[in-house]
């Protein structure tokens, strides 16, 4: 589904990703953990080309997105993304946030887009907020709307970039609940997070990144309970 080969990324002289090789299978949930500055967010943003790639290749369903001829807008419709800062469109109502991309990118008729949007809002438990503006929502509600907005394009892959890091502690649960539901439905997911509980419960595989490299990857139980690398041990001892 996703194949990342020898991915390199640098900002000027600052090398953020050195040599990343990852394969994500359909319906797999891969959780990426690591200290801040390890390059995990940059890695995620390379998968839908929000960052230009310095070297290597990223294939989404066999299509090389680093190839200049690839229509990246089309690939992005297949890859939903949820951001730490939600990035809802503040000038549009909740339902309009969800309807915008299907209507403009897929030319879905407004009525159909609205119907689908309401169904998605029901799924994340926010149907009654359809006509509200994002600024009137709590952080947890905003993030659930952001997930619904990404799902409206019916992506095959969902990327989550620290989706709960900007939330008050009591709101983390409601967002993770929605993500668990998605995983259960068989969505292919790559999640950058500090929520180790989520990683253990939902993750099929955990990748530990440090200093632009993948230090260790394994099933959650193996990685958390029997880490092999010293850097993994040091990191886990700090956060668990």
């Amino acid at each position: 589904m996703i194949v990342v080969e020898k991915l390199k990324k640098s900002f000027g002289t600052n090398v953020v990703l050195k040599d990343i090789n990852v394969t994500v299978k359909p319906q797999e949930v891969v959780v990426v953990i690591g200290p801040s500055g390890s390059g995990k967010s940059t890695f995620l943003r390379c998968i839908n080309l929000l960052e230009t790639i310095t070297g290597g290749h990223v294939y989404i369903e066999g299509i090389d997105i680093t190839d200049k001829k690839t229509d990246i807008n089309k690939i992005r419709t297949e890859v939903g993304m949820v951001f730490q800062q939600f990035n809802l469109f503040p000038h549009k109502k909740v339902i309009e946030n969800i309807m915008l991309a299907p209507m403009k990118v897929r030319n879905t008729p407004a009525q159909e887009a609205r119907k689908k949007g309401l169904a998605l809002l029901r799924k994340v438990g926010l149907e009654e907020k359809a006509e509200a503006f994002p600024d009137s929502l709590s952080g947890g509600q905003k993030q659930r709307v952001a997930i619904a907005r990404a799902l409206a394009m019916e992506p095959k892959i969902m990327l989550f970039d620290e989706p709960t890091s900007a939330l008050d502690p009591e709101m983390v649960g409601e967002v993770l609940e929605v993500m668990k539901q998605l995983a259960k439905e068989g969505m292919t997911m790559v999640v950058v997070t500090h929520e180790m509980g989520f990683a253990k419960e939902v993750g099929d595989r955990v990748i530990f990144m440090d200093d632009g490299l993948i230090v260790e990857e394994n099933t959650p139980s193996e990685l958390f309970d029997h880490p092999k690398e010293d850097r993994t041990k040091a990191f886990l001892s700090k956060i668990l």
Binding site: R76, F89, A150
Partner: peptide
């Protein structure tokens, strides 16, 4: 306008022009 607005629009598959027209410029 926060650059996250452009990123969110592009991540949904909108072109640069669409993102400008429907998301960035109105704000």
């Amino acid at each position: 306008i926060d650059k996250g607005q452009m990123e969110a629009s592009r991540s949904l598959g909108m072109s640069h022009v669409q993102a400008m027209r429907y998301v960035i410029l109105p704000q």
